[in-house]
Design a protein around this nucleic acid. Sequence first.
DNA 1: GTGTTAGCCTAGGGGGTCTAGGTTCAGGGA
DNA 2: TCCCTGAACCTAGACCCCCTAGGCTAACAC
Lengths: 188, 188
Amino acid sequence: MARAGLTVERLVRAAAELADEVGFDNVTVSALARRFGVKDASLYSHLKSAQDLRERVAVLALAELADRAASALAGRAGKDALVAFANAYRDYAREHPGRYAALRVDLTPEIAAASRADRHSELTRAILRGYHLPEPAETDAVRLLHSTFHGFTTLEAAGGFSHHPRDTDSSWAKTLDALHVLLGHWPA
Amino acid sequence: MARAGLTVERLVRAAAELADEVGFDNVTVSALARRFGVKDASLYSHLKSAQDLRERVAVLALAELADRAASALAGRAGKDALVAFANAYRDYAREHPGRYAALRVDLTPEIAAASRADRHSELTRAILRGYHLPEPAETDAVRLLHSTFHGFTTLEAAGGFSHHPRDTDSSWAKTLDALHVLLGHWPA
DNA sequence: GTGTTAGCCTAGGGGGTCTAGGTTCAGGGA
DNA sequence: TCCCTGAACCTAGACCCCCTAGGCTAACAC
């Protein structure tokens, strides 16, 4: 009988696809094993636990999102950079809802450090370079931007904006306008 | 043998407490039954399913949060109202992390309508009355505020801000300052 | 060819979800 | 008083998921 050729990488990639298809909460060791035509017990040679699997998906999503954000920022500055970064964030959430949901799992400090989870903060900080904010204002602004992007995409994905005629794209564009203005006039 | 005197209301209230204690993801029909000293099957005369239980906790949290927000807004206007509302939101999330996490479940449209989930939008809109924004700017601002409050509290609860010396309370206060300024100078 | 290792297996325990169908308790009507 | 009825709670059991222990086998090394 043929080996399935399982690898941690293949498993995690497949789990990420599974998450986008059926939702992150439904990513289960059994479902993943089924997808490979293999018994669930077999996956435990590659994975420590179901939680381990979910964390690996989160780390994958974290890295993918950071890569996209970095590309979006390349060669841009000021409002251009802000908009490109924000759109990279939102587009990723819409294309990969399962992976995006995976970002909500809290990683252990060790894993977070190893996966360079702080890349996101650094990238956000890069946007702000054009606005010349002194510390600690820059840190506060990083947190505001993060919160807003994350909150908007989360609420949008949950359908929180859907019961109003104003379309979400316009609100998003206007929100970015407003943040740009705000960063230019950050209160002392 | 004594009856436990189960009611949907008692069950949901207990489930909410359970959520705050052990996390929303660990709110299970079995655990709830155990808490009442009853077999899990017995709860299915009161609840349709585990999902039904979770939705009811979400509705409870939604209502509690809206009540707090409404009290916070009473008799306030302008920045006072903004700060009071935002703090009500954040304080609730910190006091009741399990209930707050429950808000992430997506309610079916029928349940959302029946639970007046739109009260939050209306309350947010009440804050904005002092800033005199024309439509659709007001709607966009409602969405921005919602996104920011939700995103900030979510990231804070997940420990997303914990690896930086700048304390979260100060960032929060500064974020509210910034939003106040922004609402006063909303871009055309 | 014989070991070694990694990849996959069966078996099985534990817990969560939910259904079907039974029993007991409380209150109302003949 | 006795019975009826409905509500509250039960047992039994099917199904899925998580995970461990231990066994078999294909592939590679020597």
